[in-house]
Nucleic acid binder design. Structure first.
Lengths: 223, 223
DNA sequence: CATAATTTTAACAACTTTGTAACAAATTTA
DNA sequence: TAAATTTGTTACAAAGTTGTTAAAATTATG
């Protein structure tokens, strides 16, 4: 399970790849241009980039060079996907720092197998605990939360609450269940403290805040 | 420059590949069968294996499995070369532990480029003892640290801490993880000692000091 | 073995998070 | 519809965490 950034301008292909990688258990963020990709990298910090080399605007090769020349990202694995299949194109991409090169049309199964191989070798590969739900990404390793592409800073209690909800989407928790799980079974905290934290959590999540539903007389759930 | 074992039964192809890889500065040992390959591995200990999957006698797939199941060689990079180009063949080889798959006839230039890519990622290649992150250079060989162009003098504990952080950028360490890694698993030092060292480390790193982030209630990370 | 350097602890300051309470808004109940 | 109850929100004091410094303890070094 890895965080993958997919840069592909063809909408339908992006959807197909994204769908299949998500099926494999990866968290995928897609974009149709390299400029946005640069911004997303900063925030989302993917484990692997899938890059269409022929993009409108900032070209894939330029993007590749930018990434490789930035020491922060210099060893982020990159797989090129491209319609160009000449020896020169492949060799150039590999020499520019790509890790692999797939020519369109390619088999999705081969792609997912290659993603696995690369992740196995990557230093980023250590076991990830990343949960994704409706555009919300909670990275349990780094204690980071992403809402869309933007990172959201949560306090510890807010983080624990959100994590619990996203680990059990749709499940209804009573305030006391939340208290005993997040605060500890012997906490002697006023039940309405939960409401207060839910409120600030909703606020920080912005629009996405309303996936936290209150169940009158019972408690809360995320849906 | 790497040590490469080439397992290919077709003499002329073996000669061509061998010639070209040697030209690139690699040391190449070739054989036409998998049984000999197993013996050569013990003696020669290659950095990379190029394996024709269709061999007389012991089959390439069996060979692949043998290598992968031997913990001593389990992460030795293997590139498959094969005349079979079906999706299934490729996926099976990759899932069996191959690092890449080239279908015959392939371009020698692409092969040499792929060899470079794989060697770059291999643990041998990564083994250089100089780590660089965001303008910070830590030279593990002579215990020196450079921040920008200026050398910074760190104490041993500070050095070990920084090294650990830079070896795992973005990873969050709890105070106890830091203690058990840097101080030793049986150290009985007060957890807040870590904070004290982090503080002086930050100070010595000047501006760059704030790449060390505190994760409230958890610990620290470098980002 | 004395001196210097490093490491640990402790104390306090600065800062952040948390819990509560009070009130507003919404919902339910009678 | 009015009263009662429940939930949402906010401000703020209390509690807790982290940052920093200096002195004490320990370890290395000439």
């Amino acid at each position: 399970m890895s965080k993958i950034l997919l840069v592909e301008d063809e909408d339908s292909l992006r959807e197909i790849i994204s769908f299949n990688l998500k099926n494999e258990g990866h968290v995928v963020v897609g974009t149709d241009n390299a400029n946005d990709a640069l911004i997303i990298i900063e925030e989302f910090v993917p484990d692997l980039i899938l890059l269409d080399i022929m993009l409108p605007g900032l070209k894939g090769t330029q993007f590749l060079n930018l990434i490789r020349s930035n020491s922060k990202y210099s060893d982020m694995p990159i797989i090129i996907i491209s319609a160009k299949s000449s020896e020169n194109d492949i060799v150039n991409a590999l020499e520019a720092g790509a890790d692999d090169y797939l020519t369109k049309p390619f088999s999705i199964k081969v792609l997912t197998a290659k993603v696995k191989v690369i992740m196995k070798r990557s230093p980023h590969a250590r076991d990830k605990k990343v949960i994704e739900y409706d555009g919300l990404v909670v990275d349990e390793n780094d204690y980071r939360v992403f809402c869309g592409n933007a990172e959201v800073t949560l306090t510890h209690k807010e983080f624990e609450l959100l994590l619990l909800f996203l680990k059990h989407p749709k499940r209804v928790f009573t305030r006391n269940q939340l208290l005993s799980t997040v605060w500890g079974y012997d906490s002697d905290v006023y039940t309405r403290t939960v409401d207060s934290h839910i409120s600030s959590l909703r606020k920080k999540l912005g629009e996405k805040g309303n996936i936290i539903k209150s169940i009158p007389k019972i408690g809360y759930k995320v849906e």
